[in-house]
Simulated scan of single mutants.
Amino acid sequence: MKSQLSRRRLLAGLLAGGGGVLLTGCDRLVQDDAVNAWLSHIEKLTMGSQRLLLGRQRLAREYGEADLSPVFRANGTQMPDSEDYARMLDRGFADWRLQVDGLVRHPLSLSLSDLKRFPPRTQITRHDCVEGWSAIGKWRGVPLGQVLDVAGLKPGARYVVFHCADELERTLDGSGRYYESIDLLDAYHPQTLLAYGMNGGDLPVAHGAPLRLRVERQLGYKHAKYLMRIEVVAAFGGMGSGKGGYWEDRGYEWYAGI
């Protein structure tokens, strides 16, 4: 997820190189307001065309048990550097709670046991990282849409923001803490899971225990790990740098559809 070649930089490289992917000057270009506006416009066109061609509810490909990768890399944070997280881990996440709030009628505080009482879904899918590697894993969890239905969305709800326990940078304002967001269309996609299980067992710590997001039609950095809070919002402009996610605030595109 820390690749320096986000698709935004690739687009900037194409712009700089007149058709060849030249990285000289890319960072300078992505900091230019006019170029950023143009790139954002292209990203919106990409999202619209992908959804039009693929269909709003079309499923990502699912695989069989024989296709599971013998090794599934754990990228990003391997374990949050947090005393609170270490304490919850020592207690087997017995006192962990997922908060669901924001533009909802019924704010929720859900334990792992609560989540496991929802009708579960199991799916075997391919994880595609922006760094260029892929792996196939088996995920079990509750479809996010079921949780949102219980919470009840208020008028004006447009996005779902995922606040996480891992802090990739130590900053005074908390902007180094990982977060991600998706819109309601992806939130209600049948393969969008709050996953608590992987490959037949509990979700490992390196892969985001006790709970992570699986949004199967997008690249890996959208699949937020170590979930602590789900916030339903009308807009995410007031969070971080206003781009909708930790890596998006650092130049990645918000819609990472594949």
Rank of each mutant, 00 (worst) to 15 (best):
V130L: 11
D81C: 11
V161K: 07
P80C: 00
V104I: 00
D32M: 01
F118N: 02
Y188K: 03
R214V: 13
D27W: 01
L108Q: 09
P204C: 12
L144G: 08
W133C: 11
T122M: 05
A151I: 03
S134V: 14
H189C: 04
L5D: 09
N199F: 10
I230Q: 09
D114T: 05
F93T: 06
D95G: 01
S109N: 11
G132C: 11
G197V: 03
Q50P: 01
P119T: 13
L52E: 14
D32G: 04
D186L: 08
E65I: 00
T192G: 00
L112D: 03
R91C: 06
L148P: 13
A187T: 08
G201E: 15
G55V: 03
A34R: 03
G238V: 00
A209Q: 04
G132P: 14
A94S: 13
E131T: 15
R250C: 05
R8M: 07
N75T: 13
V150P: 07
E65P: 00
R87W: 07
A206S: 12
R140C: 08
M239Y: 11
E65V: 06
R9A: 02
G244S: 12
A74F: 04
L14P: 00
L14E: 07
R177A: 07
L22Q: 07
A86Q: 13
I258E: 07
K225H: 04
Q31L: 08
L11C: 10
V233Y: 03
G19S: 14
D95N: 14
L110R: 02
D149A: 12
P204V: 12
F72E: 04
R170A: 14
H189L: 05
C26N: 00
A256E: 04
V233C: 11
E253T: 01
I230S: 07
R126E: 15
